[in-house]
Design a protein around this nucleic acid. Structure first.
Length: 567
RNA sequence: GCGGGUGUAGCUCAGUGGUAGAGCAUCACGUUGCCAACGUGAUGGUCGUGGGUUCGAGUCCCAUCACCCGCUCCA
């Protein structure tokens, strides 16, 4: 069972050095996060896996790394400046939100109240200025020096379409991949690293023939779109996401962005907030390249609802030597979030498992206690049903005791109790999370007992795909007071270090050392023991199965490189 | 931005106006022959921040910030 809540992931991330709150010493800065030693490893692995699959393993892709700070003109002509910045006012009384420039007076059109917030600019782009500027906002001088932190990496790919095409002598169809940071001043960030104001994208602009130039037997824009959707979908599955928690969802007409002919989102089923977009694959047509081009036929401008671009010095077209024609290519854009990917992979990998049989006597004690809890709960449910006409469940909030929830809770608890001890973790979770369990006194008494027992018998393990694991191998001496064993453990560490991230640890008993590594998803642990002294073999312990095999030290590197997909 | 909640040691939390606490974690020493062992000791907190009430504030009041939940928003 993957993570039950984002909170679990957030705690683990902080405790074990994946992700820390940003600017923490000064009280934190809303929704900015710093990636710790393990987080940065994982980010690198995600990005490398993406780059390998989209650039190295194809023959029709090139890479790019564009500047983050970009001319204001880029975003004027891409359409972002206009669509990203409305001055809005809120009515404090009825909470309706209106565009300030649509108001005819200082009165809310909905309820007539004059109690409005001052207009706030909802420009989602972070801006700055190049050079020393003292000019007042909005003046020609200020606008001339204004720059934006890119809100997506895509536009810098468009700006470089011709550079890449000519310098690498590419023929359409081909694509350009970019990984990099993007910034959006989101009104409502949240859900840990799911929506943040600073984030990282992995984007591809794949340039293809416009429909009218597609010949018999060549792929249409729709076919390319489909191909990329399935290509990208499979990438997620290949890195360990279960198909039951990953879906393709085609956006309907109303949802589509102004530039897109079609978009399919890849969504992951997160705990707490459910399906969330981790990647979008859009058919952007020739909108973007046309928008940045100087010479575009009027008919195309009209079709794309674009103004003529007098600022641009370029036309982003392509001479097709076969068709002997010049055209502005269409674009398929697979655009994934690095940080969202990390959250999805962590949620997917998080598991709590029973690894020890609980004490039979304690299980019996709980078994006898549960029927009493159920009986009491049912009594409460009955009382609550009687009280229902009371205003308990009114606008003030949900009732303290919801009879239906309580009954559902009782049914579930009864079923689980029959399956003890195997269901210990489920019961622990049920007592903690089920709405029907809230506020019940006997539950409050039972909870710590179950929780304690569960904690004693459980291990937390990140079943990360080996490619994504921040630490690949941990190396322990079985006994840290045996110098000859410690010595070999150090030597093995040194031997493997150039090829993979390894961790040497001798600061606890062997069991604890294993658990620590399980919690950060280390696929393999190596233990140097007394047998090593006799025959030069070590114990190789696997994270997922906890099984141990003996491996010759000489063969370790080769074996690990294979098992970790490094060779 | 609105409503509700939370904020005390690295983590989980206790502490209802009178000397800042526990468990876990971390570190050191000893012990330890494979899945969260044990002993001894140590480190660690201006109680989110700022103001106020009070002889005295972690505790009461005001403001502010951050996070969580729900709205709103999300080209």
């Amino acid at each position: 069972m993957p993570a039950r809540s984002i909170e679990q992931i957030r705690n683990l991330c902080k405790r074990r050095g994946f992700i820390f709150p940003g600017s923490a010493a000064y009280g934190g800065l809303g929704s900015f996060w710093d990636y710790g030693p393990l987080g940065v490893e994982m980010l690198h692995h995600i990005k490398r896996a993406w780059w390998r699959s989209t650039v190295y393993e194809r023959n029709d892709m090139e890479g790019l790394d564009g500047a983050i700070i970009t001319s204001r003109k880029v975003w004027q002509h891409s359409g972002h400046e206009a669509t990203f910045s409305d001055p809005l006012v809120d009515c404090k009384k009825c909470r309706a939100r209106h565009r300030a420039d649509h108001l005819t007076s200082n009165v809310c059109p909905k309820c007539g109240s004059a109690d409005l917030t001052p207009p706030r600019s909802f420009n989602l782009m972070f801006q700055s200025h190049v050079g020393p500027v003292t000019a007042e906002a909005g003046t020609a001088e200020e606008l001339a020096s204004r720059v934006y932190l890119r809100p997506e990496t895509a536009q810098t790919i468009f700006m470089n379409f011709k550079h890449v095409q000519t310098s690498l002598r590419r023929k359409v169809p081909f694509g350009v991949a970019q990984i990099g940071k993007a910034f959006r001043n989101e009104i409502t960030p949240g859900n840990f690293i799911f929506r943040t104001r600073e984030f990282e994208q992995m984007e591809i602009e794949f340039f293809i023939k416009p429909p009218q130039f597609v010949k018999e037997g060549e792929k249409t824009d729709e076919q390319w779109h489909e191909e990329w959707i399935s290509q990208r979908y499979n990438w997620w599955l290949g890195l360990g996401v279960d198909a039951s928690r990953l879906r393709k969802r085609a956006q309907d007409k109303a949802e589509l962005a102004h530039y897109a002919k079609a978009t399919t989102d890849l969504e992951y089923l997160f705990p707490d907030f459910g399906w969330g977009e981790v990647e979008g694959v859009a058919n952007r047509t020739d909108f973007d390249l046309s928008a940045h081009s100087r010479d575009v036929p009027d008919a195309d401008l009209a079709r794309l609802k674009l103004e003529k671009n007098a600022d641009s010095t370029e036309t982003f077209d392509y001479f097709d030597p076969e068709a002997k024609a010049r055209y502005i290519p269409w674009v398929i854009e697979p655009s994934a979030g690095v940080t969202r990917a990390m959250l999805a992979f962590l949620c997917e990998a998080y598991h709590e498992e029973l690894v020890k049989e609980p004490e039979a006597a304690e299980i019996e004690a709980i078994k006898t206690e549960i029927p009493a809890v159920i009986k009491n709960a049912q009594k409460k449910a009955k009382e609550a049903r009687k009280d229902k006409p009371e205003p308990a469940a009114s606008a003030a909030g949900p009732a303290k005791f919801d009879p239906e929830a309580i009954e559902a809770f009782c049914t579930a608890l009864d079923e689980m109790a029959a399956r003890l001890p195997a269901s210990l973790l489920e019961i622990d979770n049920l007592l903690e999370e089920h709405p029907g369990a809230a506020n019940l006194e006997p539950v409050k008494k039972l909870k710590p007992k179950v929780n304690k027992m569960a904690e004693d018998c459980v291990r937390v393990v990140l079943r990360l795909h080996p490619t994504l694991a921040p630490v690949k191998v941990a190396i322990f001496p079985l006994k840290k007071n045996a110098p000859e064993i410690v010595d070999i453990a150090h030597r093995v560490t040194k031997q493997l270090s150039p090829f993979m991230r390894v961790q040497y640890d001798d600061s606890a008993g062997i069991g604890r050392l294993y658990r620590r590594q399980d919690e950060i998803g280390t696929p393999f642990c190596i233990t140097v023991d007394f047998e090593t002294l006799e025959n030069n073999t070590v114990t190789l312990r696997e994270r997922d199965t906890m099984q141990q095999t003996r491996v010759k030290i000489d063969e370790l590197k080769h074996l690990l490189m294979q098992r970790l997909h490094l060779a």
